[in-house]
C-alpha cells in the first residue's frame, strides 16, 4: 500500500521551477531517499507534502487520503511528521520538555490539569530519548547540545508524534562520523522496529545507499530517476548530474 503519494505536484517561485510535476510514492514500511544537487527542489517537495506551502497544482495523498492543502498541524494528527534541514527545536525548553509537548499534543492531553511531571508522558519521552541516545541529556536545553544531538532531537520530536510517515530533511548534515552512525541506526530502527515509513532527503550517498529501499533522484524540480540503490547507481543520467 502507498503510504505517501504525490501526483504531478507543481510549485514555481516566480520563474524558478522549484517542483515541476513531481509524482512519487513511498510504500508502507519503506525508506525512500530523495537525492539531488543543491536547489533541486527536495526541501520544497517536503514543504508541499507537509502542508507548509500550497502547490500550484497536483495532489498529495497520505494512506490513500487526499491531504492537499491541509495545514501542518492537521497533518500531524493524521500521522505525518517531519523534521528540518536546519534543526528546529524549542530553544528554552529542556530536551525532555521538547518531547513532552509533542507527546501531549498528539495524545490530546494539553490541559491545565495535566501536570508536567505526569509520569506516563515522562516515561514515554524518556524511552524515546533513550532510543536516540539523548536520555542523559534530558535536562539540558538545546543550546547546550552538540550540533549532532540537536539534529537528533529534531528527529526525536518528529518521532514522538507517533507518525505513520516521517519526512527527514538531511538529518545527518554536518554530523560527525559517530553521530552519523547513530542516526543511520535510528533511521533503520524507524522502519524495522517502529514500522514508520520514511521519506529521507540526504546528501551523503553512503548513508543513502545503506538505508534506502528505493531512491528518487531530483534535478531542477523534476524526477530524473527512480529505482533501487543498484539501479540508480548505474543510471547514466544520474552519473551525469552528479559528475558533470
Amino acid at each position: 500500500m502507498k503510504a505517501l503519494e504525490t501526483r504531478n505536484l507543481r510549485k514555481y517561485f516566480g520563474n524558478v521551477r522549484a517542483v515541476d510535476g513531481v509524482s512519487i510514492h513511498v510504500d508502507q514500511g519503506e525508506i525512500v531517499s530523495l537525492v539531488g544537487p543543491n536547489g533541486a527542489g527536495k526541501t520544497t517537495l517536503l514543504n508541499l507534502i507537509s502542508g507548509l506551502i500550497k502547490p500550484d497544482s497536483g495532489e498529495v495523498y497520505l494512506m490513500g487520503e487526499d491531504i492537499t492543502g491541509k495545514s501542518p498541524n492537521q497533518l500531524v494528527s493524521k500521522g505525518l511528521a517531519r523534521c528540518f534541514q536546519i534543526s528546529n527545536v524549542f530553544e528554552d525548553l529542556t530536551v525532555l520538555e521538547n518531547l513532552l509537548v509533542a507527546i501531549h499534543s498528539i495524545s490530546g492531553t494539553i490541559s491545565m490539569t495535566k501536570r508536567l511531571d505526569d509520569s506516563e508522558a515522562v516515561e514515554k519521552a524518556m524511552k524515546i530519548l533513550k532510543e536516540f541516545n539523548l536520555d542523559v541529556k534530558a535536562h539540558l536545553t538545546p543550546k547546550e547540545l552538540s550540533h549532532g544531538d540537536r539534529k537528533l532531537l529534531d528527529v526525536a520530536i518528529a518521532y514522538s508524534l507517533n507518525p505513520k510517515v516521517i519526512l527527514l530533511d538531511e538529518p545527518t548534515a554536518a554530523m560527525s562520523y559517530r553521530e552519523k552512525k547513530t542516526t543511520v541506526g535510528v533511521i533503520k530502527k524507524l522502519r524495522d522496529q517502529l514500522r514508520v515509513t520514511v521519506l529521507l532527503v540526504e546528501h551523503d550517498l553512503d548513508v543513502v545507499y545503506e538505508v534506502s529501499d528505493r531512491i528518487v533522484v531530483m534535478h531542477q524540480g523534476q524526477i530524473l530517476s527512480v529505482g533501487t540503490p543498484e539501479e540508480v547507481r548505474e543510471d547514466p543520467k544520474v552519473k551525469e548530474v552528479y559528475l558533470g
Binding site: 498541524n73 500531524v76 494539553i110 495535566k114
Partner: peptide, 24 residues
C-alpha cells in the same frame, strides 16, 4: 506547570515548529 503551560512556552519559543507538532 501543566501541559497547557508547556504548549504556551513551545509557541513562544518556536511558533513555526509548534505547528509541526500538531499545535493549533
Amino acid at each position: 506547570r501543566s501541559s497547557l503551560g508547556l504548549s504556551f512556552m513551545a509557541v513562544r519559543d518556536n511558533a513555526f515548529r509548534a505547528k509541526f507538532i500538531g499545535l493549533d
